[in-house]
């Protein structure tokens, strides 16, 4: 497209492409391929057998349960927070956004620690809970709470910019046409942000299923009871069951690939829609003689 002298020489171009390709290949592609190769080191039957261990099945069930609790709660919060932040002006808005993002800048281990301090035997409510025999730590509620904490910002963070970009005019138009608040939300707001919302849900889900640090602190590592899939990976690894560890890891890697695939499809679709709109504008602008 451009003339000579405003592009790098062929040699430089391909040299840089080679450097970037090697870096990505070494740090991303190779580890990814390795997961599946190691998982199938003992063939299909070995793979399936590794996954059929009762403790591994229990870990898969626990991970699905945690995601089923955490994702809906954070979706409701994310939509509410995005509505308040994107559609209204108020003092302290930047502070609120910073606080919503807070879990991103806290180490997962610290996130787990925070709940140990609240509910642990030496924690604020430790004795009170012990007396009443209520189990939060080393049980499902603790794992769910820690996961809630680390996945807290995902949906809100995806939705806020999308809602801000669409503005409030459509909603105002709906109100002037007689729609009430709920009708406006369901029929106008939600359809226009649905892809952003879906993307937020997918990301939140991926992180909820894959969280390691925070869950590791609060779970207690009770085999068959409080091990999630990532914790199961660690335990199998420590027991030198490489195939077992990689088999579970391959499921999580597949989840990551699906998440990436979905994200990429979404971006391509939006880009195509954008290009279509650009072309439409251009042909409308063209001089009609």
């Amino acid at each position: 497209m451009a003339g000579e002298g405003i592009q790098e020489s062929r040699l430089v171009r391909w040299g840089l492409i080679a450097v970037a390709g090697t870096f990505l290949g070494l740090f991303l592609l190779l580890p990814l391929v390795n997961v599946f190769v190691q998982a199938f080191a003992e063939g299909w039957s070995g793979y399936l057998e590794a996954l059929r261990q009762p403790d591994t099945l229990a870990a898969i069930r626990l991970t699905l349960t945690v995601a089923a609790i955490v994702v809906p709660l954070n979706v409701v919060f994310g939509v509410a927070a995005a509505w308040a932040v994107a559609k209204f002006e108020f003092r302290g808005k930047p502070l609120l956004i910073t606080l919503i993002d807070l879990p991103f800048s806290i180490s997962p281990v610290v996130a787990g620690l925070v709940f140990m301090v609240l509910f642990g035997t030496q924690g604020y409510f430790g004795e009170w809970l012990l007396e009443r025999d209520i189990k939060i730590l080393f049980a499902l509620p603790g794992i769910a709470l820690a996961t809630l904490f680390v996945t807290f910002p995902f949906v809100a963070r995806e939705l806020i910019p999308v809602m801000q970009a669409t503005g409030s005019e459509q909603e105002q138009a709906a109100l002037t046409l007689g729609a009430n608040g709920w009708q406006t939300f369901w029929r106008v707001t939600l359809p226009s942000v649905k892809w952003g919302l879906l993307y937020g849900i997918i990301l939140c889900n991926a992180r909820a299923m894959g969280e390691f640090g925070a869950v590791s602190v609060v779970s207690g590592h009770i085999t068959g009871l409080t091990d999630t899939m990532p914790l199961r990976v660690e335990k199998l690894y420590q027991e030198y069951d490489a195939t077992g560890a990689f088999a579970v890891a391959s499921l999580l890697a597949l989840l990551a690939l699906l998440t990436l695939g979905f994200k990429t499809c979404l971006e391509w679709q939006q880009q195509r829609a954008y290009e279509r709109a650009q072309r439409a504008v251009k042909s409308a602008d063209a001089p009609s003689s």
Binding site: V35, L203, A245, F246
Partner: peptide, 21 residues
């Protein structure tokens, strides 16, 4: 698309495959 892989991959899996490599 692959650049986002570390965002999506659970860290335990990353650690496992890297240590194996």
């Amino acid at each position: 698309a692959l650049v986002d892989f570390p965002f999506a991959l659970p860290t335990a899996v990353a650690g496992l495959t890297l240590s194996n490599l």
